[in-house]
Design a protein around this nucleic acid. Structure first.
Lengths: 223, 223
DNA sequence: CGGGTTCTTGACTATCTTCAACGAAAGTGG
DNA sequence: CCACTTTCGTTGAAGATAGTCAAGAACCCG
């Protein structure tokens, strides 16, 4: 998941579900905290999340970290470059993934449907990342946090979105490293939103959106 | 082009050259300043740059801008999401591109070789963007500018790289919008590098790298 | 309940931006 | 070919936003 506002996010995520049969391996269970792959591993498979949340990160030698994306159900992760993974991938919650042989992406010979779906996932990925660049490079802290909350709402599906209750499976530090901020700034921005009555914090990981429009206009100076 | 340090950048760029014949349209010439496509256009074709430099940008309503990438010879641009282009694309210099029908990416039926090459370009794109995130989100102004200069050196090929002479086809404002900085900060950082003897400015668009190692260590706190 | 982690808050600082002016380069038309 | 205009780049001073350092509060887990 990137912070990309209301684009037609994952319109075909459902279509992927049809084709469970083509996965070369049925389903893989990951405990909370388990790593699916590391940066530099050679990339043998792609993974589609069916349950839980994954986190993709990239590290600098001195410990600075960037969260590249969160993998929610429907997302495909593990696209390689030069045959290798370019991020670490860890389960934030107990998760399940369906894995696909890399060759299904390379060629449509084995399974044209799976091939097409993985390809579309790759293109979605590129589009989402392009959107995300704008946010990392050009938005203020409040705009980033607002965009993040809006994007999270989108990902929860109509049900939870309508309720305005967002459950954040990741710690503040992950949000900070995702948005290019510090945990302190994220925390202060939450407080500021709370004090202006835009959100409420039910508990540390549950955000109630009180003024969705205000949040949107804070986030959506863009696009 | 993203600011991605010494990964094996574009190892297969040469391979693409072999297959000029498969392009559904031979070659397209773009004048300096011409647009190849706009954000929101429906994406009918992919383009491989053979000469010149393209610039991919994304805009916010209020005018804030992010340069997503520069397209140098060998780069493929125009990957769509939801069937549409997500950036504007303009020629920075007189440029030539080979265009490919989108269907060549979707299916290997027409031309397996072209299909494979476009696919690999898409994957390279994802990898490069992941690297670039780290820079946008986590690097300081000097680190960003140093990374940018190193990346530009890489793109010029061994010949020019060895000479340490970098010709920057884009104005400072494009560099700034690419790195998430202001033109003033970019300018000041150049000056600072010049005063510390790391670079010299032959003219406004030609940088001479005097201390490549210093530049690298400034840039490469990462990865 | 206790110990450790995570989150929040505060005070201070640094980095980068903003605003403004000046200089250099490039394009235009006489 | 030269003045004129415009755009682009550099520099300075002041200000704002986010970062750093540090302490206290809330939460989680055994």
């Amino acid at each position: 998941m990137y912070v990309t506002l209301p684009t037609q996010t994952h319109a075909n995520a459902v279509a992927l579900d049809i084709d469970l049969s083509v996965a070369s391996r049925p389903e893989l269970c990951l405990k909370d905290g388990a790593y699916l792959f590391f940066e530099g591993d050679d990339a043998r498979r792609l993974y589609r999340v069916t349950e839980g949340v994954l986190r993709l990160t990239r590290l600098m030698q001195d410990g600075r970290r960037q969260v590249i994306a969160f993998g929610f159900p429907g997302d495909v992760v593990g696209f390689p470059s030069g045959g290798r993974h370019h991020t670490d991938c860890e389960a934030l919650l107990p998760a399940r993934v369906v894995s696909y042989k890399m060759s299904l992406l390379d060629s449509e010979a084995d399974d044209p449907v799976a091939h097409q779906l993985l390809l579309q996932a790759a293109l979605r990925e590129i589009g989402a990342m392009q959107d995300h660049f704008l946010m990392l490079g050009r938005k203020s802290a409040s705009e980033k946090v607002a965009s993040f909350l809006v994007a999270m709402t989108e990902r929860l599906g109509a049900k939870a979105a309508a309720a305005g209750r967002i459950s954040l499976p990741m710690p503040r530090s992950d949000i900070a490293d995702f948005l290019g901020l510090t945990t302190e700034t994220v925390s202060r921005t939450f407080t500021q939103f709370r004090k202006s009555g835009i959100i409420a914090l039910e508990n540390i990981q549950t955000v109630i959106v009180l003024k969705p429009d205000a949040l949107l206009s804070l986030a959506e100076s863009c696009d």
